[in-house]
Computed example of a mutant assay.
Amino acid sequence: MDWAPNPGEEDKVLYLFDGGRLTTDECRRIGLQANELRGYAYHDVGELPELTILRLVRRITAGIEARANGVTAYLEHGTAPETAA
């Protein structure tokens, strides 16, 4: 979950969901709406900086780490907030 306040657009709460892994057969059955999508691809996490903006790189990377640790991540602008001592 990522809280992204923006004075021009109001506050947003953005979610990144882990849909699991697709089988080869499930990948073959993916249908795209031509008026919305040209295609899809799978990429290594190391390629993210070349594919999207920094804020999304942080959000996706945090999601991958949260999945690996079995937790839900809370972010503010794509970054974990400082914890109070």
Rank of each mutant, 00 (worst) to 15 (best):
G20Y: 10
A85D: 07
A66N: 13
T23K: 04
Y42Q: 12
P81N: 05
M1N: 14
K12G: 03
R59E: 05
E36V: 12
R67F: 03
A84S: 07
D44A: 10
P7L: 13
K12N: 13
Q33C: 10
G70V: 07
Y74S: 07
T61M: 04
A41N: 04
I30R: 01
R67Q: 08
V57Q: 01
R59Y: 06
Q33F: 08
L16T: 15
P81A: 03
D44F: 01
I64Q: 12
V71K: 09
L75H: 04
T83H: 09
Y42K: 01
H77E: 11
A62C: 02
H43M: 05
A73K: 09
G46N: 07
A41D: 10
E82R: 10
P81T: 02
Y42G: 05
H77I: 01
E9G: 10
R59L: 15
H43Q: 01
T72L: 06
Q33A: 11
N6V: 11
L75Q: 11
K12V: 11
P7F: 05
M1Q: 14
D11T: 08
T79H: 06
M1W: 14
A84P: 05
T61A: 12
L51P: 03
I30L: 13
D2G: 12
A80P: 15
G63N: 04
R55Y: 14
E76D: 04
T52C: 12
H43E: 00
I60R: 03
D44E: 02
P7S: 06
E65L: 05
T72M: 08
A41H: 04
I30H: 00
V71R: 09
N69S: 13
V57N: 04
A73D: 05
T23L: 09
V45E: 14
Y42E: 08
A80T: 09
L32A: 01
L75K: 03
E76N: 06
T79V: 13
A80Q: 12
H43A: 15
I60N: 02
A80N: 00
I60D: 03
R59M: 11
R58C: 05
R67Y: 04
R21N: 04
N6Y: 07
R67C: 00
Q33Y: 07
G31N: 10
D2N: 15
R55V: 15
G8W: 11
K12R: 14
D11Y: 06
D25F: 02
L51R: 14
C27S: 03
R58D: 15
A4Q: 15
I53T: 08
T83V: 04
D2I: 04
V57T: 13
T24P: 05
M1R: 15
A34G: 03
T72I: 06
N6M: 07
G63T: 05
T52F: 07
P7M: 10
E50Y: 08
E76S: 00
P5L: 09
N69R: 14
N6Q: 14
V45Y: 01
C27A: 10
